[in-house]
């Protein structure tokens, strides 16, 4: 092969063939590499390919430590190489690279046969979302006490930007917690359950489970409904309790959690 007689690639076609190598292992690019010294072009190119795969693997590893423990090394590696093929990165920050991982896990066997796997991945992504969501001032008890009685009924709460409301069909969070404590998780059990995740005022990510009633209240707030609507909902559910006390209990616990956003 005489290199001098070869047609030179444009920048665009060179980049296209290099990407085809990195993403699909196509070797046309080898023709564009100068042979130098003892190191073969294959070895040279593989340095790039290995770096590409290792970098993406490291991202998934860092984002999904507990999922990694749940799957074990072999399945985790299978998942990583499958995801790298399924979802080439189109983001500038690796922070977002694995955003489609939960979706991939619902589609790809053997992972799709065990829906709890996708749910664990989804839970870990929500933790990340809570971790670096926008900052905002939080609503305080002082602020609440300054309200005049006439302000109360039309009061519309807003949540801190880190707040994530989610529901799962399986015991994924309990399994996540068990593995976090380095204990064996229970077998996967189907059980609908609701969770709230957020970043607390000390900037630590927190989560807790929610009962049906609280889920409805939080959804109502997310839909922009005011305090009187919340009370009305509680009134229709309750027979023997003072609705305003019940509502205030919820609000106080939200203030303690630091999940309400300040109006100021």
């Amino acid at each position: 092969m005489v290199l001098d007689n070869m047609e030179k690639n444009s920048l665009a076609s060179l980049q296209k063939t290099m990407m085809a190598f990195l993403l699909k292992g196509e070797t046309i690019i080898e023709k564009s590499i100068v042979k130098q010294g003892n190191v073969s072009n294959k070895t040279r190119l593989n340095i790039y390919k290995n770096a590409y795969q290792a970098r993406l693997k490291e991202v998934i590893d860092n984002d999904h430590p507990i999922l990694g423990m749940y799957l074990g090394d072999d399945l985790f590696d299978e998942m990583v190489s499958g995801y790298i093929d399924y979802s080439p990165s189109n983001c500038t920050s690796l922070r977002d690279y694995a955003n489609q991982l939960p979706l991939f896990l619902t589609k790809q066997k053997p992972f799709s046969l065990h829906p709890i796997i996708s749910e664990i991945a989804q839970f870990e992504r929500l933790l990340l979302d809570a971790f670096d969501a926008e900052d905002a001032k939080r609503y305080t008890k002082d602020e609440l006490q300054k309200l005049s009685p006439s302000d109360w009924l039309a009061l519309t709460f807003r949540f801190h930007p880190s707040v994530q409301l989610t529901s799962f069909e399986w015991n994924c969070v309990e399994s996540w917690q068990a593995l976090k404590k380095e204990t064996a998780p229970d077998p996967a059990i189907k059980q609908t359950n609701n969770w709230l995740l957020w970043r607390n005022p000390e900037r630590l990510t927190q989560f807790r489970s929610l009962n049906e009633e609280e889920v409805v209240l939080i959804r109502m707030i997310l839909n922009g409904e005011d305090f009187s609507a919340l009370c009305e909902y509680l009134y229709n559910r309750t027979t023997d309790q003072d609705v305003s006390i019940l509502a205030l209990n919820y609000i106080n616990s939200w203030l303690d959690d630091g999940i309400l956003r300040s109006f100021s």
Binding site: Q15, M19, L23, Y52, P88
Partner: peptide, 9 residues
């Protein structure tokens, strides 16, 4: 990267 795919390298 090229064609909207980022190699992050």
């Amino acid at each position: 990267g090229a064609h909207q795919v980022n190699s992050h390298d």
